[in-house]
Design a protein around this nucleic acid. Structure first.
Lengths: 341, 341
DNA sequence: TTCGATGCTGTAAGCGCTTTCATCGATCAC
DNA sequence: GTGATCGATGAAAGCGCTTACAGCATCGAA
């Protein structure tokens, strides 16, 4: 009665197949792995037995024997759900998943900030359940990349780490260039009192965009307008925009460090009776799908998410294969002009 | 030279620790697993040795020995990126990830439609790299749930499967109720020529919403208005709305089976010179964040994503623990009234 | 005929961990 | 003092697979 529950069920193993086919385990293994040195008839026999028995190799056992799991972790370093709701991160997850298709490598999603102890993640990773780690959404003070490198875990970071870690590969988008692009665009369309909603200063992406934006203004000989900081959420964008309007009611443009905050700005501007783009031009960043759906549609700096994901997984897999980490990669961005500017 | 690459690096094992501490492997294992029968001083000694050596247990080996991986797969059955861009799915991924935090169970993300052969996924899952499977975004003809149940893989489906599979647990939201809610709301606000943008008929969520919508209209004694089908993408929503306007230029309301399509409808309506909600009321479905960001903000049927994810993982973990699959769960939905209706 | 290739196949030693079972003092009741 | 009991530890047998290495025909060349 209680003995036929699924707990007792055991799928066929290599031994089962070997016994049924009258060959050795090794031979079956060779057939399964398409190893060359098996005669045609034996291979056929074994194949037949495999399908007859419905045998499926046990990946865990294989991993143990080969010391390789064929899976990589994507770890997101964000504390709360609000930030995780950022469509850019979602896009990153999906893109990463897609770029792994066909490689036989599986994606393990790890939300690390949520772990009770900090050590857990490193232990997990070092515990050998994944061959390598993709790191996204990092903050400046994060010790993780260094720890991983020291533990000799193949690692690729999405975005530039705060300070260089020797032997750490990363793939960044040209945030400085993007910020500058935004500034130049606004200047180029005649705006002169440009404000900015910056992202959290502890994230290099945010800092770099701000730097680029400053350079763009400086290059045009314009003074740096008021700046308010947000945390990449829409709500923080609304707060920042409100603050900016108070500080300079006559501003004629605003550059937000991501689209979500730009959307917040759009709302506040509308509520304050400003017309976009007539009175105030708005430029966002990321170019998530949302940007094309707002009213007016948002001009935004496009990030090549898929390309970034592809590059990251490519570097990681090469590293897992034994190659050196390789140099940092910087991907170009471009401005997508829509109705808000 | 070439012999000190990372390929040759081997982290300490149980044996290493045992030898260093002068005890047996078994004892170290007991300490690591907090098994009770270890004397205090030995435990202390072993703990010290562990930290000194920086030992981390190898999860793969443990999995093999315990026949348990402590990870589950979330498989998404969608072919192309467009559909995967649906924020509802993204929310589902994040929510699932979050609901697993603290359980010690890892999430493996599998995008199954992309696999070259259809069999691969089943093999992967049966291959024992995961203890169970969460299935999302399923289509009617999908044989996967039945296959999984037959292979005795603990499985929980998100959404109602097309036809009942004995021994298959699923967690659905009340789509019939939601459709009805939408219809009643529109009727209740005086709309009489109500059209609908339905989702793909091969997904039960879409079909059920349509059913509920029909019932709501029937209950109010209203005729069923024109219906156009989309595939849950915004573009398909635009196409559908265009078609509906042609078929009935005087319609005064439209119910879309998800928010993305509702957004598409909003655009087309605006382009056609209809005011929302004055001329045409619009109701969406899912209540993703986007719904509150459109202009006008979208009335939508709210789906309890987090609750669904929590329930699914709960059921799955129980099932992995040996419990019976349990009865299907139906979660209630509610209408969130905003400006578009 | 003999020897060395050559090509398959089997043997067996791991991979690093868990867990049962046996062992061995120490403790206790009598 | 004796046997029963108990708690802590070790020995060893797996978990299911890979992969040297060895063995054994078979074949061609000398």
């Amino acid at each position: 009665m209680s003995s036929d529950g699924r707990a007792d069920f055991r799928p066929p193993t290599l031994d089962t197949v070997a016994a049924a086919a009258g060959v050795s385990r090794a031979t079956v293994s060779r057939v399964v792995n398409n190893s060359a040195k098996v005669s045609a008839d034996v291979r056929e026999l074994v194949d037949a037995t495999i399908t007859r028995l419905g045998y499926v190799p046990n990946r865990t056992a294989r991993s143990l024997a080969k010391r390789r799991t064929d899976s990589v972790a994507l770890v997101l370093r964000e504390a709360d759900a609000t930030v995780l709701a950022d469509p850019y991160l979602a896009a990153m997850i999906i893109a990463t998943s897609r770029s792994l298709v066909g490689t036989g490598v599986q994606l393990v999603l790890v939300n690390a900030r949520d772990d009770p102890e900090h050590g857990t993640l490193v232990d997990y990773v070092r515990g050998g359940h994944v061959d390598g780690v993709l790191l996204a959404s990092m903050h400046a003070d994060d010790p993780l990349p260094r720890v991983l490198v020291e533990a000799r875990v193949p690692t690729v970071v999405g975005g530039r780490p705060e300070r260089p870690v020797p032997g750490l590969a990363y793939v960044d988008c040209d945030n400085v260039g993007g910020g500058r692009l935004a500034a130049e665009h606004l200047v180029g369309t005649g705006r002169r009192r440009i404000a900015s909603i910056a992202g959290p200063p502890d994230m290099t992406a945010a800092a770099d965009r701000l730097t680029g934006y400053h350079r763009g203004l400086a290059h045009a000989g314009l003074p740096i307008g008021p700046i308010a900081f947000g945390d990449f959420t829409r709500l923080s964008g609304e707060r920042a925009m409100t603050e900016l309007l108070e500080r300079d009611p006559d501003l004629d443009a605003v550059f937000a460090a991501n689209d979500l905050m730009a959307v917040g700005a759009l709302r506040v501007l509308r509520a304050a009776g400003r017309r976009v783009p007539e009175d105030v031009a708005v430029v966002g960043y990321d170019d998530v799908e949302l940007a094309s759906l707002t009213e007016p549609a948002l001009t935004s700096v496009h990030q090549p998410v898929s390309e970034q994901a592809d590059t990251m997984t490519g570097l990681l897999l090469r590293q897992i294969g034994g190659a050196a980490p390789g140099d940092p990669v910087l991907l170009p961005v471009e401005l997508v002009h829509r109705d808000s500017s």
